[in-house]
Each structure stands twice: as structure tokens, then as C-alpha cells.
Amino acid sequence: MKKILEVKNLSVESRESKKKILENISFEVDENSIYALVGPNGAGKSTLAYALMGAPRFRIIAGKIIFENKDITKTSIEKRAKMGIALAFQEPAYFENIRVKDFLKVGNKDISEKEIEKTLSLVGLDPKVFLNRKVNRQLSGGERKRIEFASIIAMKPKLMILDEPDSGLDIIIYREFYNILENIKRETKSSIILITHREEIGAICDKAGLLYKGKIIDEGDFRKVIREYCQIVNRKKICKGFKE
């Protein structure tokens, strides 16, 4: 299968603290696939997401990022966005006076109002209610996450990086979220890197990687990886009911 992303021996440090956070990371993402990145808190999952997006607060000190056969290791964040990489932040920023429809246009100025409405519907938000609402703190956490999600779908990216889109959502909503994710994969043909803690996600993932202390220590079938994850973090609750 054709690769959309190849990460080769990537090491990353924080620009501010100069602390090395990721070391020698290698993995590949196939086109039109979902790659789950699992790992305990502090493993470096979000840092990896930011580094792939090209966030300036992190510095790549070794290795390469290849996107669609092009070396983008030194490419700026905005150029990566224009090439087709998009990141949905785990804790999205609020924009006090910006309407949802204007926020969705930031990454795609040519998007029509009809397409915006469709995108909002796709993430389970009623366009009539949300189109003109402000992206401010009056939104609930779940609503803001859906808008974040919608804003990157609106970009029509080739690769979506979703940083824990299911965190902070209750059990009913996150099940719905996985359905949304499947819809998106089907409709947009985007590849997805999904950072998550939840084993339920296995049903829709094609492949997974386990990140632990800044390194990928296991990769392959989601079930195999999650089993390894359970052993590492000793979270019996997570593994309970898990069927091989």
C-alpha cells in the first residue's frame, strides 16, 4: 500500500526547555488508513502530533518526516497545512469574537456555506444553531472539540492528526464520535493519525503504535499493541473484557 507519511528516526526537543521528548521514532501511515497512537500520559503523544504538524515550540534534532515522498522535516507549520496536513488540538483554543463559520473558513477560504453546513452536520452539530455562534467559552468542551474537528475537515486534508478527540467526552458521546470518524474516513478519503487512550477505538483502526517514554516500543495490530499497553501501565480496568 502507498505510504502517505514516513517518520524515520525522529528525535524532538522542546525549544524552550531544550529537553529531549521524543527519541528515534519511526513509523509509517498508509493512505486512507487510521493509525492509532496509544500510550500513557506523558509518553510524548501530543509532542509527536505537534512535531508532525511543525509547531514552532518543538525542534527536530534528528531524523526525517516524509509526507507524500517529500521531505518536510524543515517545512514550516503553515506550509505543511497547505500541503494537506491538519491537526485537531486536544485542548482547542477559543476565539472570543470569531463566528464558527469564519473559523471554518480559516483553513479553506474557498469553502462554500453549504459545505460548511455539511461539515458541521458531519460532526453532529446542527448548522442552524452553530453556524453563527462564536468560538468562545460559552461552548461546552464537547461542542468546541466538534468544531475543531469540523475545522480540519473543512481543510480537506490528506492527513488528519487527531489529538485525543475523545478525551473529556462522556461514554455516549465518544461512541458517537467513532461513528463520525468512520464517516469522515469514508467521505474524505483522508488518512488519520488518532491519538487515544481508549481500546474501543480498535474496531476502526488499521494499525497502532505504542509510545512509551518518548519511544515507539511496539507497533502492528491494534489488539496486540493495546495488550502490550495494558501490561506496561498495568491498567487492568482497561484490559478487562478485552477479547483476543
Binding site: 515550540r57 483554543a93 476565539f95 472570543e96 469574537n97 470569531i98 483553513g107 475545522s151
Partner: peptide, 29 residues
């Protein structure tokens, strides 16, 4: 300017200057 806001906008393809203008416009409006 809130760095989180800037980073979000730049990850949507805006240059740093465009992102700053966008945040300022939002605040002033």
C-alpha cells in the same frame, strides 16, 4: 498574543502575520 491561538491558526495555513491580524481583528470587532 495567545500562543495557542496563533499556533491553531498557523496550523490552518495562515502565516504568523496573518494569524496575528486575525486575532487582532477578532479582539477589536
Amino acid at each position: 498574543i495567545n500562543q495557542k491561538e496563533l499556533e491553531t491558526l498557523m496550523s490552518r495555513g495562515l502565516s504568523e502575520k496573518e494569524a496575528i491580524d486575525f486575532v487582532i481583528k477578532g479582539m477589536i470587532e
